[in-house]
Design a protein around this nucleic acid. Structure first.
Ligand SMILES: [Zn+2]
Ligand SMILES: [Zn+2]
Ligand SMILES: [Zn+2]
Ligand SMILES: [Zn+2]
Lengths: 333, 333
DNA sequence: CAACGAGGTCACTAGGTCAT
DNA sequence: ATGACCTAGTGACCTCGTTG
């Protein structure tokens, strides 16, 4: 337990660094991204291009390649029409802007995702080796089961595993594009799912359950998150913070937490908290890309994203989980 | 026995959930609120914005929409003028909090009561539309009834919803705007209400419902403590705490709780406790600032601000009174 | 001492500038 | 027209002081 919290502190400490140090790539041209601009990670060039072009669509010109150009770093200036189309496709929009620093939660998920892709592991495996228990949902289900049984009759029942699988199985809306640009310029794009709600296009879409703030290294077996009376946070975080939650549409929302108890004599033990439910379930402005719709079973709860080619009885995952944790000292500048 | 425990635990958890839900949204932009800032529940962004802008009105700029912008979470950064106007409209001010350093539950309660009186609705109705579901006891009462049967004869019976529908009347203040910002920048706002009393002068000393800490599910209808010497609290609440109680005259008192038994081997089960009654039964002070003896004028509004500041003995000249409230922080130069 | 708001910090971004 | 660089905010997180 103490070990987990030591790791956690490392993660918190590194969250002070800039997100631009992460190796995000421009979603349009694949150049290293300069930041999150108009709803997507982009380079300086694509950011400026989108900002200029948005208010000056008449200067776009026509594609000489039948709109089939594949945008990359080299050719991005050669076809403005296709470049803008790519911008729209990756979700850029004037209404997708965000300000201020990213949450620690977001940064940690960037790291974990990055690490998972680099090592070919699942996000859950990486998360587990770094004390981010909230990625692992199977334990939560079994914990709830054993705790409360399968009582489906009581109206006061605590959440059941069926509730959770229902969340995971729910249909997923498809991508959302900027409504101003679409009809006038790119009518050939699919417009049936257009909405004013924007979704961020980073691929941190694999969180099976309650991606909780990094300040809250959640022991899922103790976290009755869905009915919400307890959470655990490490000693030292004595202020209200946020708790993130994914709804049936894979939108993320947050709620505020407040501490009820704080035992300063216990150095490394977590602190029990209540959380304050937000009935509005307001989507997070900086939300993430939605996962593809996959058939779900009870078995692959923890394997949601990896197409469940795994057997539920597989034991090799233990070895993966026991791998070395994230090297949190690298790529800090 | 185990079955008995489970029922208790479920109900306790439910009580805690409903009582813990603050559900406050930013009055300016509708994002989940981070706290009570400058006189209103606001998010972090609107809090910082107001704090910055108040001392730097020259940077406001002009609204390009004739001052008609409807502020929300997405567009709040696009028109500073309208954002600040909204801040003022919802009552933000640097002149000090109306309610002092009371709990957020107290503030929410006061605000709900104000709103109920202004709109001629019951506190319960307003509470429900503000996400304060704990004011609504019917569901809980029926739930408990179904669990324990309907014993209406016992003096310890569960409270009926009729027990808590009594609402005390008190004078209703209309809107009060910040006096520094109004005349110079927003003369088009309705100013006829400025001469009314500030809310800090309204007495909330006879609250019909419980504006108490979220830790303490206090409505008598939600207390299982009444049925004996046992209470159930989740594991981890190992420190002495208070238990609030409302008597038939709607006076509140509290008792101290202390742990007698603590089974640390049971990881996730609630802990059975006895509670130790405080012989004093000290009543809770639910009053806010006393109403003044003099009728209010425009002058008096400023005077009140002064008096509630740190120098109550300072005798102010008329010139001083007409000045804007002192605020030397965050000079933008 | 637990709760909480004001104020501060600084990681972040839209928009502008200007050499290319 | 482009994009590296700059500037004025913006807001997530934190500290400190007050207070009940
Ligand atoms: Zn690019
Ligand atoms: Zn093209
Ligand atoms: Zn706001
Ligand atoms: Zn405006």
């Amino acid at each position: 337990m103490a070990e987990h919290y030591r790791k956690h502190k490392l993660i918190i400490a590194m969250c002070r660094f800039s997100l631009t140090a992460m190796n995000q790539l421009c979603k349009v041209c694949n150049e290293p991204a300069a930041g999150y601009h108009f709803g997507a990670f982009t380079c300086e060039g694509c950011k400026s291009f989108f900002g200029r072009t948005y208010n000056n669509l008449s200067t776009l010109g026509e594609c000489k390649n039948n709109g089939q150009c594949v945008i990359n770093k080299k050719n991005r200036t050669s076809c403005k029409s296709c470049r803008l189309k790519k911008c729209i496709l990756v979700g850029m929009s004037k209404s997708g802007s965000r300000y201020g620093r990213r949450s620690n939660w977001f940064k940690i998920h960037c790291l974990i995702q990055d690490q998972a892709e680099m090592n070919g592991r699942t996000v859950e495996q990486v998360a587990l080796t770094n004390g981010q228990f909230h990625y692992e949902s199977k334990n939560l289900v079994s914990a709830i089961k054993s705790q409360y049984g399968e009582d489906t009759t009581s109206p006061n029942r605590i959440a059941q595993s069926s509730d959770i699988t229902r969340v995971l199985k729910s249909p997923v809306p498809t991508n959302v594009y900027d409504t101003k640009l679409l009809p006038t310029n790119f009518t050939h794009l699919e417009t049936s799912n257009i909405s004013h709600e924007r979704k961020e296009n980073i691929g941190y879409n694999r969180l099976p359950l309650s991606p909780v703030s990094p300040m809250l290294p959640l022991n899922s077996s103790k976290f009755l998150f869905q009915h919400g009376n307890e959470a655990f946070i490490p000693k030292g975080y004595s202020r209200a913070t946020k708790l993130y939650k994914m709804d049936v549409n894979h939108n993320y929302s947050y709620q505020f937490l407040a501490i009820n108890k704080y035992d300063s004599s216990q150095e490394d033990t977590p602190v029990v908290m209540d959380y304050l439910a937000d009935t509005q379930e307001t989507p997070i402005d900086l939300s993430v890309k939605k996962p593809p719709q996959l058939p779900m079973t009870n078995y692959n709860l923890c394997l949601i994203n990896k197409q469940s080619s795994r057997h539920p009885t597989e034991t090799s995952s233990i070895a993966n989980i026991l791998e070395s944790p994230l090297d949190l000292t690298r790529k800090m500048c």
